[in-house]
Design a binder for these strands. Sequence first.
RNA 1: GGGCGUGUAGCUCAGUUGGUCUAGAGCACCUGCCUUACAAGCAGGGGGUCAGGGGUUCGACUCCCUUCACGCCCACCA
Length: 905
Amino acid sequence: MKREFPKSFQPHECEAKWYELWQENKIYATDTTKGTEHYSILMPPPNVTGILHFGHVLNQTLQDIYIRRNRMQGKSVCWFPGMDHAGIATQSKVEAALKEEGLTRYDLGREKFVERVWEWKEKYGGIILKQLMKLGISCDWDKTLFTMDESASAAIQEVFIDLFDEGLIYRGKRIINWSPLSQTALSDEEVEFREVAEELYTLRYYFENSDEYLMVSTVRTETIFGDVAVAVNPNDERFKDKIGMKVVVPIIGRVIPVIADEHADPEFGTGCVKITPAHDPNDFLVGQRHNLEIINTINPDATLNSFAGEFAGMERYAARKAITARLRELDLLEKAESYTHNVGFSQRGGEPVEPYLSSQWFVEMKPLAENALKVVKEGQVHFHPAHWVKTYEHWMTNIRDWCISRQLWWGHRIPVYYTEDGAQFTAARNEEEARIKMNLPVGTKLNQDPDVLDTWFSSWLWPLTTMRWKFDGVTENTPDTETYLPTDLLVTAPDIIFFWVARMIMATTKFSNHVPFKDVYFTSTIRDGQGRKLSKSLGNSPDPLNIIEKYGTDATRFTMIFLAPLGQDIKMDVDVINQDVPAVEIGRNFANKVWNSGRFLLMKFDEACGENDIDLNKIADLTDSELSASDKWIRSKYNNTIVVLNKLLDEFKVTEYSKTLYDFIWSDFCAWYVEIVKVQFAQNESPAYRLSLMKFAIDLYEGILLLLHPVMPFITEEIWHILCVKGDNESISLEKSPVANPAYIDEAILTNFELLQLIVEEVRRLRASMNIQPSKKLPVAISTQDESIIAFLIEQENSLAYFMKSDNIEISNTATKPEGALASVVREIQVFLDAGDAIDIPAERARMVKEIARLEGNITGCERKLSNEKFVQNASQEIVQNEREKLESMRNSIAQVRENLANLK
RNA sequence: GGGCGUGUAGCUCAGUUGGUCUAGAGCACCUGCCUUACAAGCAGGGGGUCAGGGGUUCGACUCCCUUCACGCCCACCA
């Protein structure tokens, strides 16, 4: 029975087929009992609202490569998947849907609203997980955790209570970043600064009952209603006598003092700064130092409140315009100049954040950061590339407290209970416990804090919650934490190093005494041809699913890692209109190459079988004496490649890993060895030999499939099953990574074969230079004094003849140049090509003259080096010796070329 | 303002502790090929003062200093 090997690879059919089979057979299920070695990766949980982008493709592929490789090395492997509830993003989505119905979340009330969000989550959320499956990733989906799951929520609550009891979580009234759009507080990390061109207005603050005034500059004229002082620098001579005097706030006429504070920079603007403690973090500090009143003049939705008098109810930017116009009318505006400065924007909503005074919950970060910094500096956690350690260190040493409360409904509700008057409060699992903690009588009414926690407060516990840590309060350790913590690798984008990576290190070291992971691989940012980050808002990102549809998953995966240098951005041309990323052709063509070489080997095997149905596994191996030098060469190359591939992956040089695979398969295996198989097959008609030869080649090819499987799981699986290499198909999937056998790495053969390649290439070059018909066969003579090379080349004569298109080869130490032949020298080996009439003498002469010039240049350089006493003295003996041999060799070569030139008629 | 990174062929990038690197690969380009799987392929070719300057060294793409260009991060002055 002949096996069907279709002419071309159909990615889509086989992708669905194999992924289903993998899932059905649970071959990626975690098995803590298997093996003595363990390997685990935490999947960065995508947002429940997320959709697949190229960042995911790269990121997931990298993780999958490491997971599959380690699984194939026989380790007990776990890849923990999951999904993030994404507080603001998800709540906004549902609120937008409600708006369509003409409703707000307040119409529904908290409980009903949260129900709606859950409904939304079940219905529309988690599309991303299905999309991730298209990438062929081999995580254990049964372990999927949603950050709002009961187990995770329980752990989050425990952690909050612990930190509260320890005093590391506290409630404080501070200026925080307020998102008027989402009407919630944000952490510092959720704010991004952008340069904005605005106007800087200089206002006149008249002294009380006087015609004199101070000039005060501000961008935000709408905040003047909250002014409680004007500050000048205590050392500023210009204003020394003004300190303590009173000025009048424009428009509203409030009388405020002139105070002295270092915050006022004499160099900037007029040297006088208005102090608005409720609306500027620095002013807030000044206010505290001087015990000033705090007047909040802005509503949560960024409209002005009643302190703004006639401007009350106006939106902040509209109000600024109106107020500025009024100031101008009242002749209180000294000047307006254009001014570019940085303004903070909400990363999520995109609107400018409002510095806003409110009571929020904070985590004191310093004590957590110290240890988290230590474990990285000590090397318990390695960053790749390592330079991120500096960024990390900088953030850790300048860390500020983390605002964790959000005025949302979707999220983990803060487990804090207040007495009705708000005077007493504590963190507890429930009301009952809270009363006990506060020594209150049973039945005392308590109110739970209405706010929820920052999404990242659940994310920072990801290493623990994915392992069901503290669930049910039963035990601190679970079988998974015992086995898989610390995890081996985290693959993530560098832009969440503070949001997530740093905080996971803090939380995990704090609560488990483990580091969360040993290695962190920071992936490349993917940019378009113009260097812009691929993003939804720019509209410059094709949907990866369309690319997968066009080229296949394997091709897409391979291309991504082929293009992604460690620690540097990927630039790739994208065509959004046609939904194309042309670079993925690299992977597609490579897949095609792999496919066709397999198809060819099977064809030859079938040919060797003839009419018989022969089990590959029952065929005798080639004996050592039956193996040709070429067979041994490819075996050397193959084993050597395994060593190199392992080293590269251990060093996280994933791009080089992909290039090594590519070169070995395409150049060594396909371009050279498969051609040699053709020759050896043709030259020996013995059926037994042919079967054994094909077995040898297919075994090697199976090794290639195994090596390639972590990157290109589908095509390798498909071919592997077609070949039925395992005979009865006892395994469901490719299972084992090949292990290098050092005994098979034969350096002498590698060197000799390289020489063979050089000779072949030289002959091809000679033929091309004379425009010789590719089909035309010509005699070749090779002359060298090295007997071992002669022996090697003679053994390979048939292959040589095939590669060089020769019908007559002479290899000896006495071979001479046939009359009128083309002549060339390859590492002191003379190569003669008898082209007959095809020879173009002037062209040949020119070629030789050029070669002589090249050699002369090199020889001169070499001689200069060797005649330099300092070089001979200082350079290592090895280098000097090398240089001497090089010189000797080049002198011999040049003599030969000169002789050839002289003999040219 | 502080920090980090990058500048090598038209484009995207390799180049391991300085010495076969008077520098490689893929794409693009040019020439020739339907050669026993693969034209999504095969063979050959052109193209680079390794961003500029200075220094260390017998020797620098590689180390140091400096200038320029680009990118990112942090802080943020009204």
